[in-house]
Each structure stands twice: as C-alpha cells, then as structure tokens.
C-alpha cells in the first residue's frame, strides 16, 4: 500500500496537497489540467521533490530517508529515459547494477528482457539509432529488470502515435500484471486512463484527490475535470 499522509508540496507560488492511499497492485491513472502538479506528485513519490509537510509510505515504511535510487520505485520521465552515450544493453543493465559490472548471467537476463519487449538482438545499438517506440521498449526492459514494486510513468509515451502508444500501454499492462507491480501513470488523455487504469487520481486546484473508479469518474466528472475535458 502506497500512502500519502497529509502531504504538502510547496515550490514558490505553486502548492499541492495530497492525502490518499493506493492499494498494492492497483493500476491508477493520474489526470488533470497541465500545471496542476501531476508530475510533481510522481516526483515527490520518487524522491525528487522535498515535502513541506506530511509523509509518503510504502507498506508502512516512511520513504523520506531513502535516496531516489533506494526507493521501491521505477520511474520513466517524459524524455531522457536512456543515456545516449551507452548502448541499449548497457542502459537496460543499469536496472540490474548501477555500476554496470555485469556477470555473464546478468548479461543473459538483459538479453532475455530485451527479447521480452521485442528488442531481441538490438542490445548493441545506441538509443539514437532506435525509433521512439523502440526507445520506450528499452526503458520498459530496464523497468522489468529493476523489478521494483512501484512503477511511475510520467507520460513517457506522450510523443508516440495512437497505435504505438496503445502497444506500449498493452506492454506496460502485461509487465505490471506479471509482477503484481503497482502502477501510477500520468496522462492527459482520458482514453489512456480508461484503457488500462481501473482507478484514477484527479489532480486539480492544488489537490490530488483519492483514487476513484475511472469509469464513474469519467461518466460523471466533477467540475474541475469537466472544465479540463471540455
């Protein structure tokens, strides 16, 4: 269970409050107008943004003392999810060992993870030689190997076309289902939420609301969401 208890984030004029819980293994969309703080909410869970008040816990454990890399979290950003100077296999291998001193068995696991996301045999390439969809798959292969219980997606597939994005979301769904991973996924598209997230957190007007069933939320949106959806 992920809990945000009395959390308050303040950055200059911007402020966001969150008091909510996400069940283990849940798949939750985070939706709301731009600038409302969707990314900031994820950054706070990942450990990139200090809390002005409150605490974030996973399975009852306060995450505050943990550096971002030590948290039970994998995160994919909007861009720069791969180091351009490392090969695809090295980028994926960082999920196993941040110093890349990899054993033969670990190299085999990397190759298997690449094959699992449809990039078999492409480990020696550099990210610049991959398409946008392939870069997303490589980042997901690293998520597979990191095997953290919490996956945060900050719109890493926003630049992809609808069909490719649907493929990616299907792959995400399969990956989190296999390991029972808890998913928090920022999106600006209610169809993404409807596609793979049974629950949705609405972030608007300085608050992150508790998760609600996506279907009922979209069928009868509160005023803030209605203004955003138009």
């Amino acid at each position: 269970m992920l809990r945000l208890e009395g959390v308050r984030i303040v950055q200059g004029e911007f402020a966001l409050a969150a008091d909510l819980a996400v069940a283990r293994g849940a798949r939750v969309a985070v939706i709301g107008p731009s600038g409302a703080g969707k990314s900031t909410l994820l950054a706070a869970v990942a450990g990139f943004v200090p809390l002005a008040a409150g605490r974030v816990t996973w399975e009852g454990r306060d995450l505050a003392p943990l550096a971002p890399g030590a948290r039970p979290v994998s995160i994919l950003f909007q861009d720069n999810n791969l180091f351009p100077h490392l090969t695809v296999a090295e980028n994926v291998g960082l999920g196993l060992r941040p110093d890349l001193r990899l054993s033969r068995a670990e190299r085999a696991r990397i190759e298997a993870a690449l094959a699992r996301v449809g990039l078999g045999g492409m480990g020696a390439r550099r990210p610049g030689a991959l398409s946008g969809g392939e870069q997303g798959r490589a980042a997901l292969a690293r998520v597979l190997l990191r095997a953290r219980p919490l996956l945060l997606l900050d719109e890493p597939f926003a630049a992809l076309g609808p069909a490719l994005k649907a493929d990616m979301l299907a792959l995400v769904e399969a990956i989190v289902a296999e390991a029972g991973t808890t998913l928090l996924m920022v999106t600006h598209d209610p169809r993404d939420a409807a596609a793979i997230a049974p629950e949705t957190i609405l972030v608007a007007e300085g608050r992150a609301e508790a998760p609600r069933p996506t279907g009922t939320l979209l069928a009868d949106p509160p005023p803030a969401l209605r203004r955003y959806l138009g």
Binding site: A67, P68, G69, I75, F77, P98, D99
Partner: peptide, 23 residues
Amino acid sequence: DFGRLADSLGMTGRARLRLLTLP
C-alpha cells in the same frame, strides 16, 4: 538532462562518474 535518471537508478560515486559524467 540526466541527473534525475541517474538518481532514480541509484548511480552514485564512481559509477556515476564513469557512466554519466565522463562520457
């Protein structure tokens, strides 16, 4: 560009120097 990614992957000290900073 890559500080947060390196942080999220736990790349610190020598590993960060070798795999991020120097390249």
